[in-house]
Design a binder for these strands. Structure first.
Lengths: 179, 179
DNA sequence: AAAATATGTCAACATGGCTGACGTAAATTT
DNA sequence: AAATTTACGTCAGCCATGTTGACATATTTT
C-alpha cells in the first residue's frame, strides 16, 4: 500500500501525496477523443495474437518465431537484412530465434547467387506447414470480421491501418503486402 | 549455416533436409487471402506502440506501465481484479509494475468503501499528466488516420477492430470503451 | 590494397510474461 | 461463531525476447 492511504469516501480534504492530489474523473472525451480507437487497437491485437500463441506452445516456440516463420513464408529467399527491417529488432534477437528455426528444420539458408555474403532464407516443407497452421486461425478471425463489412467499410479498415503506419514506412509496407 | 546447404540456382535435384524440401513459392493468395490485413495489423500495431515507448524511456518505465497508467486514468477507482481481466496478465506481473507506479507517485490505492478488501486504483495528478503525455501522440496518429476516412469508412475501421476481439469479450470491451 | 557490406557470435543485461506457494484481511456462507 | 471464500499481496524462480557493445569472417566495392 502507498504510505498515503485513506477511505474512498472521505472527500476533498485528503492528504496530498508525492504525486499530487488524487484524480477521480476519468480522462475526458475532450482530452482523448480517439481513446476508443486506441483501446480497440489494443484489445484487437491482444486477441488476434492469442490464436497463433496456442499453436506455438506445441512447438516450443514463441511470438518471435511466429513472425520469422510468417515473413519467410510470405517472401521465400528474403535476406536477413530485409527481415530485420521488417521486424525492427536487432540481429542478435533475430539470430537467436532463427538459429532455433534452422536447427528445427523449419527454415534453411541459401547462399545468395549474386552476392555470396547473403544468406537467403527459405521455408522447408515443415516450415510451410507451420506457417499454414499459424495463419489458419487468423484467416478465420479476419475473414469473419470482413464478412460483416460493406466494400466501403472494408476500405475504411484497410486505409485506417495503413495510415497508422509511420509515413516513412507506408510505401515499403504496401509493396510488402502487395497492395 | 544449416548442414544442408547449397547454391540458390541449382534446381530441383537438391538434397532433402530434416524439414523436407525447400519451398520457393510464396504463401499463395489462396492459402491466405487475408494476409494483407494480418500484416497491416502487425505493422500498424508496431508503429502505434512506438509513440508512447519514446515517452516512457524518460520515466524509466516500459509498456506494461503504460497499459496500467492508461486504464487507471480511463477508469479511476478500478479494482485490481478488473484491471487484471483487461490486461490478461497475472497478478504477479501486474504487481511488479503497479508497485513501481505507486512508489513513483503516479497511482494511489484507496480501500474500497463497501468491500474493504478491495484496493481501488486512482491516478495522482502526476499520473494523469503522464497518461496525457502518453496518449497525445497516439491521438495525433489516430486522428490523422480518421481524418482521411468517410463516415462509412470510419464505421468499417471500428467494426473491423471490434469483430477481431474474442466474441466473449466484445460486450465487456464495448462497455469499457463507451461504445 | 583498402574500405564497406552482410552476416554471425559472444557476453551481459532489462523487461515483462509465467508458475507455484503461501499469507492476510475481510466478506460470505454454513 | 466457525468455516469458507474472496481480494489482494508477496516471495522465489524461470523463460522469452528485447537491448547494447564488441569483435570475427567472408565477400564485394572502391
Amino acid at each position: 500500500m502507498a504510505d498515503v492511504n485513506f477511505k474512498a469516501e472521505d472527500g476533498d480534504d485528503r492528504p496530498v501525496g508525492p504525486g499530487g492530489r488524487l484524480v477521480r474523473e476519468p480522462l475526458s472525451e475532450r482530452d482523448s477523443p480517439e481513446a476508443p480507437y486506441i483501446e480497440l487497437l489494443f484489445f484487437a491485437y491482444r486477441d488476434f495474437i492469442s490464436d497463433p500463441d496456442a499453436v506455438l506452445v506445441a512447438y516450443g516456440f514463441g511470438r518471435a518465431h511466429h513472425r520469422v516463420v510468417h515473413f519467410v513464408n510470405r517472401h521465400p529467399g528474403i535476406r536477413v537484412a530485409d527481415l530485420l527491417d521488417i521486424l525492427k529488432i536487432t540481429k542478435q534477437s533475430l539470430g537467436r530465434v532463427l538459429k532455433q528455426l534452422i536447427d528445427g528444420g523449419f527454415i534453411e539458408q541459401v547462399q545468395g547467387p549474386q552476392d555470396r555474403r547473403q544468406r537467403l532464407l527459405y521455408p522447408t516443407e515443415a516450415g510451410r506447414a507451420l506457417a499454414l497452421r499459424l495463419i489458419a486461425p487468423q484467416e478465420r478471425r479476419i475473414g469473419a470480421a470482413l464478412d460483416l463489412l460493406s466494400p466501403d467499410e472494408r476500405r475504411g479498415a484497410e486505409q485506417f491501418l495503413k495510415q497508422i503506419i509511420d509515413a516513412g514506412e507506408r510505401d515499403k509496407v504496401a509493396r510488402l503486402i502487395g497492395r
